[in-house]
Design a protein around this nucleic acid. Sequence first.
DNA 1: AGACTAGTTTATAATTATTCTAAAGTGAAA
DNA 2: TTTCACTTTAGAATAATTATAAACTAGTCT
Lengths: 135, 135
Amino acid sequence: MKKIDILKKLRSSRLRPTKQRVEIAKFLFEREKTFHFTVESLNKLLTKKSTSKIALATIYNTVHAFKAAGHLSEVEVRGNKTYFDTNVSNHHHFYDSETAELIDIDANDIVIQKIPKAPNGKKIKNVEVFINLKN
Amino acid sequence: MKKIDILKKLRSSRLRPTKQRVEIAKFLFEREKTFHFTVESLNKLLTKKSTSKIALATIYNTVHAFKAAGHLSEVEVRGNKTYFDTNVSNHHHFYDSETAELIDIDANDIVIQKIPKAPNGKKIKNVEVFINLKN
DNA sequence: AGACTAGTTTATAATTATTCTAAAGTGAAA
DNA sequence: TTTCACTTTAGAATAATTATAAACTAGTCT
Ligand SMILES: [Mn+2]
Ligand SMILES: [Mn+2]
Ligand SMILES: [Zn+2]
Ligand SMILES: [Zn+2]
C-alpha cells in the first residue's frame, strides 16, 4: 500500500490525514503480512523507527479511530492487554502463550462440521477459533 | 456439592479451609450449573449474600488459588476484566456481548472437521471456540 | 494568502483492574 | 497450649486505558 492509498484510506473514513495518523497508518498498513500488536508494542516500535515521537494518547486515539473505521480489528487473547489486528477479514488464530504471539489462520483452513444453535432470541454473529499452542 | 466435599476439595489441594475460602468455595461450587464470573462480580455477589465481608485481595488470592488447584478455569473474552469459570473441563462458549454473558457449549456439541497443523516445533495444546451472539 | 473553525494532538490527571506489602490473625500439628 | 507457616487484610503500588483541557493544525471560506 503506497502513501497515496494511505491518504485515500484515511480520507474515505473521514479521518484527517495528520502527520501522526499517516505515520501510524504507513507503519501498520504498508506491509505484506498481517500485523498483530498491542498499543504498548506499537508505541515501542514507532519510537524506535521514527524520529518524531507520538504521544501515547495519540496512539490510543488513532488505533481506536482505525478500528472504528474498520481498518483494524480487536483480538481477544489471554492477558490484560488489548490486541489489535491488521487483518479485518473473518479469520482464526493460533496463540502461542510462550511468546504471547498470534498467528493467522485463514477462515477456510478451519471447517466446523457441527455447531449448536444460538440460544432463544439470539443469532450467531460470528465464530472465532483459537488454537492454543505449546512446545 | 456439600460442605464436607468442599472441605475435602480444599484439603486435597493443600488449601487450608479458612472461613473465607469455605464461604467462597460454597458460593462457587455448590451449584448445578456452570458459573462464569469476574472478581468484581463475585465480590458484589458475596457482599450481597453474606454478612461477613471478605477483603477484595482475599477474593483475588482465593480465585487464583482455586485456579492453580484446577478448581476454576480462566476464560478469555473481549474486555479488560478476567473471567473465571467453574467448568474446568474442555468446552466452548457462546458470548453475548450485549449482556457480557458467557454460556457453556459442551465439547461434543462442536465438531471440527478440518484444522491446520501447528507451526514448526509447536504442538496444539487445545482448541477454544467462541460463538459471538447478536440479537 | 489570511482568517476561521472543527477536528486533532498532547501532557497530565483520573480511572479501573490487578498485584504487592507488611502487619495482624489463624488453622492445625506437636 | 504453644508454635509457626499459612492466610487475611488495608492500603500502597503498578499497569492499562480513558478523560481533560489547552495548544495546535488541516481544510474551508473569503
Ligand atoms: Mn482480555
Ligand atoms: Mn487493565
Ligand atoms: Zn489475525
Ligand atoms: Zn464455561
